[in-house]
């Protein structure tokens, strides 16, 4: 599933880029992220607990940052698997100045599998968009 959008954040590109590469910030902003541990260059192990309405599930996964070109773009890949299914997403984030802040444009692919894919079809896209929105909302609140 293709997914994309643009969010405004109140930081200059350099600062936005820096925040987006900071595992502590990523973990604070990713909905449900419980821990993010560096495992290599641009690679992190992640534990997530997703809760949406009555649905809940724990995911173990990885976050990988590649194709970094400070301060304008990088690729963020996130994958996780748990009992209720697995997800894999990879997106190119492009940061451009906009007024006093920046616009972060993302363009990516999300693949979902397991129970959530087979029974959650009508909600997968809505949910993915919502989680990304929450991520940027939280990012915007960083200082």
């Amino acid at each position: 599933m293709k997914i994309g959008g643009t969010y405004a954040v109140p930081f200059v590109p350099e600062r936005a880029f820096e925040l987006l590469q900071d595992p502590a910030v990523l973990c604070r902003c990713m909905p449900g992220c419980e821990s993010l541990t560096k495992t290599g260059d641009g690679e992190y192990a992640m534990q997530m607990k997703m809760a949406l309405a009555a649905i809940s599930g724990k995911f173990d996964g990885k976050v990988r940052i590649t194709e970094s070109q400070a301060p304008t773009q990088f690729r963020l890949a996130v994958e996780g698997a748990g009992k209720i299914g697995f997800m894999k997403g990879s997106g190119l984030l492009t940061i451009s100045p906009s007024g006093a802040g920046s616009n972060v444009q993302y363009d990516g692919d999300v693949q979902v599998g397991g129970t959530i894919a087979s029974v959650g079809q009508r909600l997968v896209e809505t949910t993915a968009k919502m989680l990304i929105k929450r991520f940027f909302d939280k990012l915007g609140a960083e200082t």
Partner: peptide, 14 residues
């Protein structure tokens, strides 16, 4: 009507 189907599918496990 929502919780029970989710529990059946084990998407919800309260």
């Amino acid at each position: 009507m929502s919780l029970i189907p989710l529990m059946k599918l084990r998407l919800a496990s309260p």
